[in-house]
Design a protein around this nucleic acid. Structure first.
Lengths: 332, 332
DNA sequence: CTGAAAGCGCTTACAG
DNA sequence: CTGAAAGCGCTTACAG
């Protein structure tokens, strides 16, 4: 299985490699009709297909980008990736997908490898921990876009939800429906995880503007595995919350598991809103009111920004906030 | 930003490119200690990182594989991809992810482009339509593995669920619980889509071995958008089914939407089993009995097979069937 | 133990 | 309108 190269085509067509190359790249400006035909024929006869690696080496462009998410199993990431892939496909780019698992060492390894493989740019959900590396990237003007998380002090295009607003939308909805004792369940506030920080802040701000005092007992920040226990404690308070905001889909899952186990009647016993629109929200009983992220738009935006940078349309790095959307259903 | 190359390192260290290359590839056998040190230092000083594209051109291996799914948004695909990525990561491979959307033209384009980019192999959920192309690939001995779908007449490693058994497990469960009038809801039986064909066959076979006559009225094969209408009709039969098998997750969603709208009491009015274990199965009310695919094992197997082929460990192409697992819960 | 040279398969400035 | 030649950044067989 000898692989056939441009030289073979050239020989077969009786022209030089240069001419074949011109032909392949559509630079027909001065090319004779018979030459074109001959090359076309030779390509067909030999079943030739160009080696893009060789081209990449010369052109310093691989038409490939890297996408590093925390975990592709998270629905939001999957949707973002799908949007990125669609956009890239329109521009003939491919995407290499990596799972960093919130592990800075893994993230660093991926970034280094991707660069070594000469990908033209990277979209990442950053761990936030590789500050030195991020700075290197911006210093060398490497095309990169962050998703979902802001790394303080780093000047890189970042696409994320207006998280404060997401929390505010939920709180306002609770209040509008007559709930004042609003609990919040969140995973641990490890540093670097923008959405959690901002949503909690948004929750506090929203309470304040509704003139509801913030009650620390109503805020549980625990590991996913302890959400249920923590919720249990919260509901056993002398004056427990009558409404609950789940900070993300995985937290919401825990609430629903707990509710089922305890035969808690959601919406009657306890109003519930989750941030992240889950697949079953509309047909759950009660249908779940959620605050949705426009994941596809966000992915598309990230891809647009990155490809623009790759094409050298320089713009100052910015933070792009997307509007969350209330999906009004039955649970509140 | 001049990029620094091996030549720069060589000059800085006062050795030849060959020696640097040896060093990078860990062929220290005969290398003097001082030489090593000098190279190491030069690399550090210059911040050198090798260009893997250049290496790939010479070595004819990119350490990258392509993964073509129908749609990454399908949970099963996402899980398979995650497993593949994990396995590849262990072997220092990267994956390029593509969505073919069950579109043969898109599939062909991806396969052609991936090969042009010299990926070392491909794992695909095949549309089944590009028979000529598949044959070319096997003829040229190109490493490829199929997932989920069998393409008749093509000899390629294929990893998929024991679909007949999945249907049988569900039917047997129904019968064991006393249900005999078992309906089946499936998306259209377009050719090439192995799982649907096989699951329907498995359903029929299982009925037979339970001595239950197959009732064509109990089998609905429609577009997803018409599942609800079709189910409605089925339940209005003079003698409607009292148990329902949803062929996959998306069909199950439609059943649940319908049940909610019609205030149908699942498990009491109608027993229900879905193939594909959905994220909310355990905390839905009633908790949903499902038949799960071992998606991660399957993805891992596909990756293992592919990397073995890439490493030239030739084996005859085979079909690998994975055991479905009953997740016994409340809906039946 | 290390280096000079050829080559991987392309592209491209230049000459004619 | 087309070709010869150099070069992209590596690797590797070979020589010494």
């Amino acid at each position: 299985m000898k692989t056939i190269t441009m030289a073979d085509v050239a020989k077969q067509a009786g022209v030089s490699k240069s001419t074949v190359s011109q032909f392949l790249n559509g630079r027909y400006d001065y090319m004779g009709e018979k030459t074109k035909k001959r090359i076309e024929l030779a390509i067909k006869e030999l079943g030739y297909s160009p080696n893009i690696i060789a081209r990449s080496l010369k052109q310093k462009s691989t038409m490939t980008i890297g996408v590093i998410v925390a975990n592709i199993l998270h629905v939001f990431s999957t949707q973002v990736i799908r949007a990125i892939e669609d956009f890239c496909n329109e521009s003939n780019f491919h995407i290499i997908v990596c799972n960093a698992d919130d592990n800075p060492a893994k993230e660093k390894r991926y970034i280094d490898m991707l660069r070594a493989k000469q990908v033209d740019g990277i979209i990442a959900f950053p761990t936030g921990e590789n500050v030195e590396l991020y700075n290197q990237l911006t210093d060398s003007n490497y095309p990169i876009v962050f998703m979902d998380r802001i790394v303080p002090g780093i000047s890189i295009d970042t696409v994320l939800l207006d998280n404060k607003r997401a929390a505010k939308i939920a709180v306002d909805r609770f209040v509008e429906k007559g709930y004042q004792r609003i609990g919040l369940l969140t995973p641990p506030l490890s540093e670097g995880v923008t959405p959690r920080k901002e949503r909690i802040q948004g929750y506090k701000n929203a309470l304040q503007s509704q003139h509801i005092p913030f009650n620390p007992d109503y805020l549980s920040s625990t590991d996913i595995s302890e959400v249920q226990a923590s919720l249990d404690a919260m509901l056993r308070l002398p004056n427990p919350p009558n409404a609950l905001l789940a900070l993300n889909d995985r937290t919401l899952f825990e609430v629903l598991k707990y509710a089922k186990k305890q035969q808690l009647n959601i919406s009657e016993d306890l109003a519930l809103i989750g941030i992240d629109d889950v697949s079953f929200a509309s047909f759950y009983s009660p249908a779940l009111t959620t605050v949705a992220q426009p994941a596809f738009e966000m992915g598309r935006k990230a891809a647009t920004l990155l490809l623009n940078r790759i094409k050298n349309k320089y713009t100052d790095p910015e933070i792009y906030r997307f509007e969350p959307q209330l999906m009004s259903r039955e649970s509140c």
